[in-house]
Design a protein around this nucleic acid. Structure first.
Length: 418
RNA sequence: GGAGGGGUGCCCGAGUGGUUAAAGGGGACGGGCUGUAAACCCGUUGGCUUAGCCUACGUUGGUUCAAAUCCAACCCCCUCCA
């Protein structure tokens, strides 16, 4: 049975993780505590390679790995090159589309880039693995005989990821059904290769983690451990990091650092302190000071959150620039030179460009119709003046250093490029 | 293989020949109020050269002046039976 962890640990790191809200469930708390105290902890988290990079939704897991390194334990990043070929049904109410190997390889590169930003890649500090290396060559019969015998269908059917699909009368293919077995096998394989005895993951991974632990117990008669993190939702109940524009990515090419900073700055009051604990490494005594903030004072905490996370993700210089740009734009209400600059291609503006086309070009609108509606809604401003005429033409000489705004929060400076 | 049920916009879901670009809700976005918050109120939510036109209700054909709605075939999903 899952044990919800409230009590104090002997291990300092576990205490910190607990205090900061990283721990949702642990397998046998005492044993984990002992493990953390007496061994070189090697813990792994698996990452799907379903997208070209990682977004804010994965940040919690990355922070966990960071904390492990902080305490001189060794994290393993497991790239799911093999399992992504199958697709994890956990938490999904319908099948994922199946990716081909080429895409997966490209995704891996993008995702790797993110880890480089957050984690220490010095020798011996981290291990990167890809489960394709061992899953690719599995022999079906051998695998079934050696490992399949340890799994009962009865038990597999009892997992939430399976039940959800069955209850909703949605299909769960045999392919996906096998995912949990392969993830259990991954754990066993990492234990064999690196003596890794700890798997971390989101709360939706609990079942998969338990499977791995049991597999290790049955095959090797040895002990392994699991910790899950809470599913981080905003107080309005939605998953972290998803907006209408798509996810908030941890890659500056996919999500502009200005937008990234704004995402954190706009955190709901009720979430700020929780997020600072989870997504920054600010010491707890400083966080405690922030906890007493009330009402609009919380805006200070939000800025700290935004600054800290942006620093970790994009570096000090960029965080600084973006912060200043926000201060100028939102507090001093001046046209900040530090806003993101959109270079308009010269051939898109021979003599002039229509506002509708421009809005689509810079990515504020998805179509001319959409742009037209936004204008009618009063969403568009140029140099802080609301524009109401959809047929507005901007001449070439107007363009330079024009501030174009969509809503209250999206601002860019236009510049005519080459 | 047999019997029944079903496939509608980002999601849920109504609609069974014309008044349907498709009710209602959710989500999202914009505006107002505020603290770049929450709550609340208002608006928008297929595309275009926007008083008009075009494309859309699993796919392809058909009936009809007119189809998401009727017919046929096919594809997919669910339940029960073999």
């Amino acid at each position: 049975m899952p044990i919800t962890t409230k009590k104090k640990f002997k291990s300092e790191l576990l205490n910190i993780l607990n205090e900061r809200g990283f721990i949702h469930q642990t397998t046998n708390g005492d044993a984990i505590d002992k493990y953390f105290n007496s061994n070189e902890v090697i813990g792994y988290i698996g990452f799907d390679l379903t997208a070209k990079s990682l977004h804010v939704g994965s940040l919690l897991q990355i922070m966990l790995l960071k904390w492990l390194q902080e305490y001189n334990y060794k994290p393993i990043v497991l790239m799911g090159g093999g399992t992504t070929l199958i697709g994890d049904p956990s938490g999904k109410d319908e099948s994922r589309k199946i990716l081909d190997q080429n895409n997966i390889m490209m995704n891996q590169d993008g995702i790797f880039k993110v880890f480089k930003k957050f984690l220490n890649f010095d020798d011996k500090k981290i291990i990167i693995e890809n489960n394709l290396d061992w899953l690719r060559d599995l022999n079906y019969i051998t695998f079934l005989r050696d490992f399949g015998k340890h799994f009962t269908i009865n038990r597999m059917l009892s997992f939430d990821s399976v039940k959800l699909r069955l209850d909703r009368e949605q299909p769960l293919s045999f392919l996906e059904f096998n995912y949990m077995i392969l993830q259990a096998y991954d754990f066993w394989e990492l234990k064999k290769r690196h003596d890794c005895r700890l798997q971390l993951g989101g709360s939706d991974q609990w079942g998969n983690i338990i499977n791995g632990i049991e597999l290790i117990r049955r095959v090797d008669r040895s002990e392994a451990y699991g910790i899950t993190t809470p599913l981080v939702t905003t107080s309005s109940g939605s998953k972290m990091g998803k907006t209408a524009d798509g996810a908030i990515w941890l890659d500056e090419d996919l999500t502009n650092p200005h937008e990234f900073w704004q995402f954190w700055r706009n955190t709901d009051d009720k979430d700020v302190i929780r997020f600072i604990k989870l997504f920054t490494t600010l010491p707890m005594n400083e966080i405690q000071k922030l906890e007493s903030l009330q009402g609009s004072e919380l805006n200070e905490a939000k800025k700290i959150l935004a600054n800290e996370v942006t620093k970790n993700t994009h570096g000090n210089d960029i965080a600084d620039l973006v912060h200043k740009s926000a201060l100028e734009t939102f507090e001093q209400k001046i046209i900040s030179e530090k806003l993101p600059i959109f270079e308009l291609n010269k051939k898109d503006c021979i003599d002039s460009i229509g506002l509708l086309a421009l809005l689509v070009k810079v990515g504020f609108s998805k179509s001319n119709s959409d742009a037209r509606k936004s204008i009618l809604n009063g969403a568009i401003r140029i140099n802080d003046h609301t524009i109401s005429d959809p047929s507005l033409e901007l001449s070439k000489s107007d363009i330079s250093k024009l501030k174009l705004s969509f809503g209250k929060k999206k601002h860019i400076l236009l510049n005519l490029g080459l």
